[in-house]
């Protein structure tokens, strides 16, 4: 009787970690790729893959403090250019940081939306 109760409790306690494990198998926030840098360079000449990666890090570090992160493909590249400056004051982003985040979201949004 006691053993069955303990088993049920352990199973119940393992349910959420199991769901977390399944969720972890799903894709998260897109990593920038070489093609993204070329696409971004059309708007910001000279931008590199490393700068896009820096934009992703900054997006995770600063934007997740205000809201759940949105995947880049949720909005069009042009929409991101409106959204990021609008949130810059609350997130205390400098103009340089705004542009770094914009580059990452603009480029990966365009690529992932095209892939879909």
């Amino acid at each position: 009787m006691m053993g069955r109760k303990l088993t049920r409790t352990i199973l119940a306690s393992l349910t959420v970690p199991a769901i977390l494990h399944l969720a972890a198998c799903a894709s998260g926030l897109a990593q920038p790729q070489a093609g993204d840098a070329l696409r971004a360079a059309e708007r910001w000449p000279g931008v590199t893959l490393e700068q896009l990666a820096e934009g992703r890090s900054l997006y995770v570090a600063r934007c997740a403090g205000c809201h759940n992160l949105h995947l880049p493909e949720r909005y069009t590249p042009e929409k991101w250019l409106d959204l990021v400056p609008a949130m810059a004051v609350k997130a205390r982003l400098s103009p340089g940081e705004v542009e770094t985040i914009e580059r990452y979201l603009y480029a990966t949004s365009a690529r992932v939306r095209d892939e879909k």
């Binding site: 977390l20 969720a23 972890a24 998260g28 926030l29 992703r56 995770v60 997740a64 759940n68 992160l69 995947l71």
Partner: peptide
């Protein structure tokens, strides 16, 4: 780690 950007 972030619940959206990272696996967990």
């Amino acid at each position: 780690a972030d619940p959206v950007a990272d696996p967990f």
